[in-house]
Simulated assay, not measured.
Amino acid sequence: MRILWLSHEPGLAGAELCLVEAARGLQAKGHQVRAVVPARAGLADRLAAAGVSVSVVDYAWWVGTDARRAVRHRLRRLRRNIRASKKLLRLVREVQPDLVVTNTLAICSGAFASRCARIPHVWYVHELFGKEGHNLFFDFGESMSLRLMNRLSDQIVVNSNAVRRQLQDWIPPEKLRVVYNAVEVPPVSRPIKRTDHRFRLIHVGRLSPSKRQEDAITALSLLAKKDLDVSLALVGEESPEYGAFLRNLARDLGVAERVEFIAFMEDPFSAVAASDVALMCSRGEAFGRVTIEAMKLGKPVIGAKSGGTAELIQDGWNGFLYQLANAEDLAAKIEVLYGDRRLLMSMGRQAQEWSQRTLNLETYASDLINVFQEAIDHHAGRKEKMAHSLGS
């Protein structure tokens, strides 16, 4: 199977890491993957190291945040996408793939090029949209855009049931397939030596309102009032206003010395491995790559009962779920593990065993191959049906 795979980002965030893992898994099974990126950066380098050919096409998103939904921004993106679709059509005709995969709902040029070239197309959705996600809104409206996604796809892969539920009003159930990501975690090369016995919490992810790190700080303050020796590390780049808000909150609640802000870590896995519990406070994780990374490092995760997080954490077995935006509930769950180190260890062990058994490269690649073959078969059946109707 020859697959042309389009990424919306040139960097290495969650969806892009999934692309790299998928390419490695598919190539190990004898399939060919060629990638398209909007610019050369970290993703292109990582793919090249995995033996994947990479092309660059300057396409734009067809979604925007509230700040970039003005008509002029939408028209500018539309013009870029018209030009990009023509370039992609030439590339598709040159490569002659069996299948085109668009690695996000944020771009559409690959879908239009595939339709023009009469090549099967799969949309691979890694994100929630609208207010449930990260305030991403379609340039041409939700209903019209999602109906177009349905018409321009032979199958749609989603990375959680949370994403499936958000799409199910526009996409028929037989076209939606849930495939959980593999999530590879490298060995921790430089373990961090602990110099104290403080109970360590960690939250990895960009500091932004949708991630709700404020809940972690508020929960920490409630634990501090009980004289529990707990600290919190917040690892991730900051949106300036929210970062300042979190620092002020920690100071106002009297826990500033217990909170460490780490803007960038080349190896965040070492920090997770040195912690006791990982937190996931986000209001709308489509999947939760960070959650699985922590589990694979043997850490229980306490996460908000929201989005894909609620599918990954089996409450009371490999972690705890707490009510979204309820810092008191979060603090209570942390306190349980603080007071029961045997439960802490068993939850971490169960999290590691489950994640390694369930979310691995072999299973991931096999699941994708099955869906891609369904898409190819669906496309062939549609062409045959069309030819039959024209002949009659």
Rank of each mutant, 00 (worst) to 15 (best):
T218V: 14
L297F: 07
Y180Q: 06
R341P: 01
L148G: 08
K175V: 01
A39K: 13
A106G: 01
V235E: 11
I202M: 02
H73S: 14
F320Y: 15
H378R: 11
L232D: 02
I292S: 05
P172I: 02
K333G: 01
P300W: 01
P209S: 05
V204W: 04
R34I: 10
A60T: 08
Q213R: 07
I334Y: 12
Y124C: 04
M280Q: 12
D377A: 13
R115M: 06
L253Q: 14
P186Y: 05
R198A: 11
R80G: 12
V371Y: 07
D227M: 08
V95C: 10
V157S: 11
G316E: 08
E16K: 12
A244R: 15
A224R: 15
A256F: 12
P268M: 07
A294K: 03
E184P: 02
S346R: 10
R147F: 05
A224C: 07
Q356L: 14
R2H: 12
V188A: 08
R68C: 09
R283T: 12
Q96P: 00
N81I: 09
A60F: 07
Q213S: 09
K29D: 03
S221I: 02
R200Y: 01
A113H: 11
K29R: 15
A273K: 06
Q96N: 13
P173I: 00
S282V: 07
R200G: 00
R76A: 13
R69W: 04
N161W: 10
L279M: 07
A49K: 14
A310L: 12
G42K: 09
K305S: 10
T195M: 08
D98F: 06
K299A: 07
